[in-house]
């Protein structure tokens, strides 16, 4: 689904040049949960930003279903993000003035989904928040906020979910609920779920873990082999 080859991202120039990514190559497959791990500053967030069409790469290639995205212009990237990705952020990034339903519906609006409120209500039901449609983010717990953010990320049925530290601000129960929803999306709906994380709780829900160190793929670890074989 996603092929990343020799991806390089540098910031600055001359003596001040920093290589955030230094030749990363890896694949992400449909239906798998992939964890990107590594110390702070290792390049995980840069990688996921380029993958999501938010940052442009200095060199290298990223193909989604065979389509090269690193050569897309600035005017083409927003459409790519709308069509291909759902984003889940560490800080939830919900709109405080909007209700849970409106937070999801606004993405429906952005992605030209028909009957945005009805679709938003369905997605909130799906993440177990049907009863909280009218609540504002300030009235929701951290776990509930993240579930609203996941419902928002699912608008338009994107092929790829990019989640940046989705459990970092959650307690263990809420964290597990969120991870169950994200892994369920990969297992039952064939979505590729990429999770940037430091949280060890995430590991038991992952199919693969890619360790990023100093802008390179340090090691790759296959998880849940038994389940895959079965």
């Amino acid at each position: 689904m996603i092929e990343i080859r020799n991806l390089v991202k540098t910031y600055g120039s001359g003596e001040n040049m920093v290589r955030a990514l230094n030749g990363v190559s890896m694949d992400v497959r449909a239906g798998e949960v992939l964890a990107l791990m590594g110390p702070s500053g290792s390049g995980k967030t840069t990688l996921v930003s380029i993958l999501g069409g938010i940052l442009t790469a200095t060199s290298g290639s990223v193909k989604i279903d065979g389509r090269e995205i690193t050569t897309l212009g600035a005017s083409e990237l927003p459409a790519l993000r709308r069509e291909q990705f759902g984003f889940v952020f560490q800080g939830f990034n919900l709109f405080p003035a909007l209700t849970a339903l409106e937070n999801v519906a606004i993405m429906c609006d952005l992605k030209n989904v028909r009957e945005p409120k009805a679709r938003a209500a369905e997605l909130l039901e799906m993440v177990g928040l049907g009863a909280k449609k009218k609540a504002h983010p300030s009235d929701l717990s951290g776990g509930q906020k993240q579930r609203v953010a996941i419902a928002r990320a699912l608008v338009g049925d994107p092929k790829i979910i990019l989640a940046d530290e989705p459990t970092a601000a959650l307690d263990s129960v809420s964290g597990r609920t969120v991870l169950e929803i994200l892994s369920g999306l990969a297992r039952t709906r064939g979505r590729a779920v990429v999770i940037v994380t430091h949280d060890p709780r995430v590991l038991e829900y992952c199919d693969r873990i890619v360790h990023i160190e100093d802008g390179r793929v340090g090691s790759e670890e296959l998880r849940r082999v038994e389940e895959q074989v079965a």
Binding site: S75, P78, R81, L110, R152
Partner: peptide
């Protein structure tokens, strides 16, 4: 700004 940044990240254009 953070909300507008979120919208842009999720695919909103400057025009939106």
């Amino acid at each position: 700004l953070k909300e507008f940044g979120t919208l842009k990240a999720m695919g909103a254009t400057n025009g939106m």
